[in-house]
Computed example of a mutant assay.
Amino acid sequence: MSVQTMCLALTFCATIFLGAVVECIVYVKNGREANLGDFPWQVSIRDLSPSVHECGGVIISKSWVLTTGTCLKGVVNPLISTGTIDILNPGIVYEVGLIRNHPDYQQYSNSNDIALLKTRFDINFNDFTKSIPLTDDPVSAYNKGDLAGWGLDHYEAALYSKYLRMTEMTVMDSEVCRSLFSQKNVPLGGDQFCAGSAITGACRGDEGGGFVSRRQNSDEILLVGLISDNFCSLNNFPTAFTDVYFHREWIRNITGI
């Protein structure tokens, strides 16, 4: 018996009954725990009071962090924690001096889901805290990439993952992806792409984290996308990302990188 379902945007997650309940499968459950330095550009975005993990972000320069509007929806006074594996024991924490949401961010159509945070003081770079360059090439179907986060390990879970977890996913053909989303009456922005895996994906608390891939014929790792919403993957349903290439000029005009 074949059944398709998903949990998506905190509003829908079907349970499947095949004589028993089948749980949502999300990447934090099946990804591996990251080691310090595996994702040196990854940050935990936290709220000032109390200082707890809310979502993810990516270091793109000594003073700028890239994330999503979805990530910042519930964050009043964001803090940025760098060099962090265990979110209960954050690394160096920086205050944010400037927030720039995309002016055309549309929450309900998932368009322009991207934002920038500028730290009050420069981020201290070392082996475990570094920036990542933006891709200069459009995303290509069937390319592989990695993502990481501290999100829920199950859509009904009460706590985020204590440790940063990471996994590999494959970029999907855009038409196939849009067809899947349309079947669920979920809009997919024109600046979004999808990646999928048989048993992995992203869930609440992972928003804003990076999807990264190696440059062709090179060891250089580039930022390709940002986890765009509260997607919990089940039965191969893809995760949607904000396309960094699509927004590269907006990012560079503000940050100067």
Rank of each mutant, 00 (worst) to 15 (best):
A20C: 14
V22N: 14
V22C: 14
I25L: 14
V26M: 13
Y27K: 15
K29C: 05
K29G: 11
N30K: 13
R32A: 09
E33P: 02
N35I: 03
N35W: 05
L36G: 08
G37K: 09
P40T: 11
P40L: 09
Q42F: 00
Q42E: 13
V43G: 07
R46Q: 05
D47F: 01
P50W: 05
P50L: 08
S51H: 08
S51T: 06
S51N: 14
H53G: 02
E54G: 10
G56N: 10
G57E: 09
G57C: 03
V58C: 11
I59H: 12
I60W: 04
S61W: 08
S61K: 11
K62V: 03
K62D: 15
V65R: 10
T68H: 02
V75L: 02
N77P: 07
L79Q: 06
I87N: 11
L88V: 04
L88N: 14
G91M: 00
G91C: 02
G91D: 07
G91L: 04
V93H: 11
E95V: 01
E95K: 11
L98R: 10
H102F: 00
P103Y: 12
Y105H: 02
Y105R: 13
Q107W: 02
Q107F: 03
Q107K: 07
Y108T: 06
S109D: 09
S109H: 12
N110H: 11
S111T: 05
S111K: 15
A115Q: 04
A115Y: 01
L117C: 01
